[in-house]
């Protein structure tokens, strides 16, 4: 019988990595549950979530309460991070465990936005993408779920199978930005 051992999605990819004014690290693996309300059940889902201090997020938004985060992840879809699905939710929404399906990365530092500007065609300036804002967008040819985690910190979630490619793309962009900064100084 094959000897299977659990590995984290970014194991062996050389993280964390600091290049220029930017640090790329793997996010700790945590529970992720996709919540997709049944037709007409958003209000009922909302009621269950409110008991946890959470809300069902509008497109492009996320909310945080007591260590858990709920992040808009697509049309009529939210991802709940860091806690088990609250009791009673399954009566009003389709729930699916996504924990093993995603690789989480955090890119932070003063050059983080310049690095992402090379890969993502969305406006990540604070005025257009404030803390806790999130988006589904392409990171080059990969689909990514991005969330602003702080002033100069972004959390990126890619399909687990694409973790290596995502780290490669981000590392290349970090190297290019760092080289450019060094040349300017």
């Amino acid at each position: 019988m094959a000897d299977l051992s659990a590995r984290e999605p970014c194991a062996g990819l050389g993280l964390p990595l600091t290049l220029g004014g930017c640090r790329l690290a793997a996010l700790p693996v945590e529970r992720i549950t996709a919540i997709q309300p049944f037709p007409g059940k958003v209000a009922a889902v909302e009621t269950v979530l409110r008991a946890q201090g959470l809300r069902f997020p509008a497109p492009g938004h996320s909310h945080e309460a007591g260590g858990a985060r709920i992040v808009w992840a697509g049309r009529e879809t939210a991802f709940l991070f860091g806690m088990a699905a609250p009791e009673g939710l399954s009566a009003h929404a389709a729930l699916s465990d996504q924990s093993d399906g995603w690789a989480g990365l955090r890119l932070e530092g003063p050059d983080a936005r310049a690095v992402l500007a090379r890969l993502l065609p969305i406006d990540l300036r604070a005025g257009a993408f404030e803390p806790e804002a999130c988006a589904r967008a392409p990171l080059n040819h990969m689909q990514v779920l991005i969330r602003r985690a702080g002033e100069a910190a972004f959390d990126l979630f890619v399909y687990r199978s694409m973790a290596g490619t995502a780290v490669h793309e981000l590392t290349d962009a970090m190297r290019a930005v760092a080289a450019r900064q060094a040349a300017v100084r």
């Binding site: 492009g60 065609p121 969305i122 589904r136 967008a137 392409p138």
Partner: peptide
């Protein structure tokens, strides 16, 4: 209509 103004590359 869901996400707001986005680049043509996303479509």
């Amino acid at each position: 209509p869901c996400c707001g103004p986005r680049d043509r590359r996303e479509f």
